[in-house]
Nucleic acid binder design. Structure first.
Lengths: 195, 195, 195, 195
DNA sequence: GATGAATGAGTGTTCATTCAT
DNA sequence: GATGAATGAACACTCATTCAT
């Protein structure tokens, strides 16, 4: 038995880590963070509990990794839109549409993120990182509304964010019967006249 | 030598129950349902764990009582507005203002209610009761927007509800620096022209 | 309000004590000693928990009183038979019949007594008292078998006692379908020839 | 560095399970099911409470396993006798002797089994299984007494069973001073004449 | 890299008992 | 004589985490 090469080891590691994260996300999102046990994650992922602790320092770190990845995912999507589109109204339209699409495609993910926003006991250190990301996002929105020529771009950004989050909230609670497209159209009416 | 009178007992009971509920609400709201232990509630309330079980059949019932009381509180406020004011725009204005006032005055309650909307592992039996109350509320809102003369009152009601909930959500996350009044004003712009 | 007379007080006491004992026996026998709580006994007896502790020093003493009374009941029955009947075979016959009659009429009672014979953790101090009573009873039986002219009256007494207890045991487990009368007849065949 | 082999794990598991069962049997038998706590079993067995729950789903399952094993032990012994011996009187003699031998060698087991016959609040699901085994045993006894040429083999079987159980009962209560051999001889006198 | 037996602090809950009234 | 609010030690059970292999 020759020792595994570095690349082989790396591949094995990556696969196990991916499996664990995927399973954990699925379970956290479906059953909640507290109601999901490490044993369950390990069993469902087909790895031992010990291996899980080789890759993550504990249950909380596992959660933090998942949340950070989710935040980065959003960041990438938004940056993409902001950089490839020039017209502010078109940016807003794409941003809105893309937000809802992400929610639709990944309901579990977002359920988890949102539910944890209220669990101040979990997280703690992650909070500052996420807040920083949120600040950047709000800054981009303020800029967008300024370019749209609105009088009070700061509050308009907050208003828009609240509206989108409120709709997401309701969609998460109601499910697929929620008229997401109708809401999307209604959001934009406010800015269409201004255009 | 004679046993305590019924009134005396009732007073003692009420005081203890109030203490327990108040403490539980505070803790559930701040740390989350799962992360708050019965021992902690009892200790913070200054009573024994045993006494808590004299008044509530368990941790879950304690939560249910708190949620039902919160739901009833809203119900009363809204009914009051709907019955004492005739003009639909004025109703909407009052409803919005009152909602934000309630949140401001009772942040704990609302943190708890909102956070539990995502904890599908708790509740279960209470869900149907709360859903029924929500349906009634939505119905009242649809009627209001119809009286306002809007074209699609159903979706307008959902839009309004999402907007208000989104703002509440953000207020809960940001705290007292959040420009609640500014948002309140922005909400109403949509309906002012129609008036 | 004139103070109650001594006799009145005594009557009140007796009634309460009787009520508590009756209820406790019923519950202990039906649900088992450990599965019956003091609260339940008090509630079912219609008295307060405090009153119960006025009359009995605790749950265990309550049980001991019940067991002692049961033991005395048997003692009385047996003494009655031994004193009013002269012929040893007739005594044996009456003793057997009476034993089964008592079981039949008071199944719960006996279930309790028997089940507790195996719970060495309960009781302790009562054990010596009950053993003394048992010794007396065995002595009477030995004497009876001696008068019957049997060769080894000591072992015959033990044999008879085991037989009766075994039948009682099975009757308690099977219930009213058990052929108690048939067994009664079979018991006596051993001694009929000797007569 | 490599994980333990399956065989190694199995050996470790078996040892722990054996230790737990042995301790639990000892304690259940001596102090009764309700009066024995899981903590006590774990401590006495020299393992942690958690380990106990790795192997048994709870206190009740632990009990059930012990009872089932006891029942199977009897079954095997009896089947052995019934299959290797042809003469019915010799079978009866062996059965009696073997029964008492088993009791002597395994007093704990039997104390537990007997005491639980009266604890109707425990068990429930196991009852049907045990009753089925008992029916089979009674059936075999009836057949034996029929082959012995007795007039009423059904009731003779019940009589014999009661007698044996009664003696066992007394032996369990009295201990090693009980004249088990004398009783064994007395039992058989009834059937010796018939032979 | 990987395992899973083992731990123990923690959970929610029960209940015999006390005592101020 | 009588009450029941209050206690706290004990219970069965869970699970994140460790570590020998």
């Amino acid at each position: 038995m020759s020792p595994r090469s570095k690349a082989q080891n790396e591949a094995i590691r990556s696969k196990s880590i991916f499996l664990i994260k995927e399973t954990a996300l699925e379970l956290f999102a479906h059953k909640g963070y507290h109601s999901t046990s490490i044993s369950q994650i390990a069993k469902e992922a087909g790895v031992s509990k010990g291996l899980l602790y080789n890759y993550f320092s504990g249950k909380e770190e596992l959660l933090e990794v998942l949340l950070l990845e989710a935040a980065e995912e959003i960041e990438v999507e938004i940056t993409e839109i902001m950089e490839t589109i020039a017209d502010p109204f078109e940016q807003l339209k794409q941003l809105t549409g893309q937000s809802f699409l992400m929610i639709k495609n990944n309901l579990h993910h977002w359920r988890l993120v949102t539910s944890l926003a209220f669990q101040t006991d979990v997280l703690k250190d992650l909070e500052s990182v996420l807040n920083a990301k949120k600040e950047v996002l709000i800054g981009q929105m303020v800029d967008l509304f300024r370019r749209l020529g609105m009088e009070d771009p700061v509050n308009e950004a907050l208003y828009f964010a609240a509206l989108v989050d409120g709709i997401i909230l309701h969609y998460m609670m109601v499910g697929k019967d929620y008229p997401l497209e109708k809401m999307e159209a209604l959001i934009l009416t406010r800015y269409q006249n201004i255009k």
